[in-house]
Design a protein around this nucleic acid. Sequence first.
DNA 1: TTAGTTCGGGTTTTT
DNA 2: CCCGAACTAA
Length: 780
Amino acid sequence: MDYLKELNPAQRAAVENTEGPSMVIAGAGSGKTRVLTYRIAHLINKGADPFTILALTFTNKAAREMKERISLLIGGTEARNIWMGTFHSIFARILRIESEKLNYPSNFSIYDTTDSKNLIKAIIKEMGLDDKMYKPGYVLNRISSAKNSLISAKAYAQHPEITADDETSGRPKMALIYREYNLRLFKSSAMDFDDLLYKTNVLLRDFPETLHKYQHKFKYIMVDEYQDTNFSQYLIVKKLAALNENLCVVGDDAQSIYGFRGANIENILNFKKDYPDYGLYKLEQNYRSTKNIVAAANSIIAKNRNQIEKKVWTDNGSGELIRVVRSLSDNDEGLFVSNDIFSNQAETGDAYRDYAILYRTNSQSRAMEEGLRKLNIPYRIYGGQSFYQRKEIKDILAYYRLTANPHDEESFKRVVNYPARGIGKTTLEKMAVAADAAKVSLWSVITENLDSLPVNAGTRKKLDEFAVMIKSFRAEAEKTDAASAAEHIAKSAGLLRELYADKSPEGLSRYENVQELLGGIREFAENEENTADGEKPKLADFLVDVALLTDADQEDGDDNKVNLMTIHASKGLEFGHVYIVGLEENLFPSQLSLSERSELEEERRLFYVALTRAEKRAVLSYAMSRYRYGQLNHCEPSRFIEEIEPDFLDMPELRSARPHRERFDSFDETPWGGGSSPFGKSGYTRNTSPQKSEPRRPTPAPPTSGGKQLKRVTQARTQGAPDADTGSSSADIVTGARVEHAKFGKGKVLNVEGEKATVFFPSVGQKQLLLKFAKLKVLA
DNA sequence: TTAGTTCGGGTTTTT
DNA sequence: CCCGAACTAA
């Protein structure tokens, strides 16, 4: 029991009180994972059977890491038997066991978001609805929210408020789409992500003996990241825990960032209603970050209204102030951050893997990547387009899925004519009509009713050949292991040949990706953990989990690389040095969150999460202009920067000058700084400014004191590659010069300020252009 | 039926 | 700017 000594009193209480309901409120960096792992280890040490422990985590990766840590604590291989995983993967597993109760085969497919959207798209088309009104993404969101609130298609159609909503928004057919969508999923023997939870609820509701079975089985239940659970998940947990009530939920309301996906903070706030005699444990000591970071984070989260009272504190040193830096553009931001990592790394000797760049949206990674590449800094991007989302991977997996479950409509449609075998749109439409009329799957149409399909003999033959091929794959997959079957199918279907033929760089990378997938399957097949009764796993076994894997679940490797990811993806991680980039209004907080207080608060929690990832150093960065839809936009610094107690910030540039005597706000009409604006001690410039709620920030101050920031930016630029070829050197572009622009035609330069020029074009009027991007040709 | 091209529309976050 | 979808030519 030595390990108990490694815990502080609060942690230890949470670990030792294993009986009865308890809630652990764990501040950022307070050793939440430690508590969970020690608690489970403790249970096992006290004699609990690992098979009776259910631990629900947010990601597969979290589950895997926790298992490893538990193994280290208790030794042996027992940890392997704990039921630990994400809600989705654990209940998919249970649903496969109990599938026949729900009239599903155990090898049902799992549709990912893309599959779901495609299906909805097809339905909307078949119903002859306007796809501008009924956007697949919107429709899926709506259905998803319904499912996560356990509202069936029938209940949806009868719900007065919901239908009224749909009516007024001009989408009266929503309920019908929902019904048809479910029907089609069922016909395909498929479930979408939300079904995995929804159907589990149905199972536990309609089959009391099954509920009892699992209530008895799971004597101890633990839920990580409880603040991110939705109603559907909440109810599953409540039902399963009802018998023993040995339920321990762990979370932090301040880190709830999945509200958009139906997560419900109320679950945390309401815990005491369901379990009045619960034990409450607050972990408030932060072991991760410096005092400055903890205090800054506290000051930010204090702006939120709804929260459980707690005070996170730390014994760690004060550390550096949090630096705030500004760049001219998104590209400059990339250069600055890379440069700063480069010099800081050289100075501290810390490993590259100790650095993270966090952003709000995936699209921001590009500018960062470019900067890092220029300095030859190794980096790794998490998320973005997940490996499993890539077209070539989805294609090959569709073959595997179809092999395991030929009724899978989305997989069928994806591969029936890939590689091209002359089965085109027209044929597919006829098949869809036939399938709908007979209320069967597309597969049934070509295997059972092919003769009645109104197509010519040639097409019929092609369809039959396709069916024969898939059947042969099924036979192959039955008798050999996953790796051999996977390779056989990839080859026989003509996929590998197709990809190999493409010698373009993208084609090459697609081929490599497929090889990587095959390698992964080989590894899976050789892994002893997956062998059952001395037999190597089958292809179907590989497919069970693959739909639920995401990029974040891929092996980390020991690569020493700078980490790039969205803030969402960074949850639960920590890094010595954290750069939070793109801190601009409308980006972070996102434009879409500004209308509602609750959503703005979620953005703020997101910022809190980002900041609390940092151990010793945090840098906040924003740019003054950024490309969006290929267009340059002016940006304002994020309100979150202002919301931090200034005592914890090192923010020279907000008090000092912008580079040169630049004046970005175009209200100022004076061409070039004749009066050289005396540090806009408000009053001068405020006239036209369309003030928002916030007071206007004091405009630029003396050029001289801006040295620090200025130097960084320019240095970044010079250290990067020499200016991209703009046709003519930017030196020629001076005030008064006549220039030509590809789009706007001829114009006259009114003003040049550093990177930026104001040019007048007779065609479109006055334009602000960044010299680096606008390929201006200087006319004699 | 397919391949190649233009066109229009879209970026929040993910199991 | 980048992608997919619709459109157009073989």
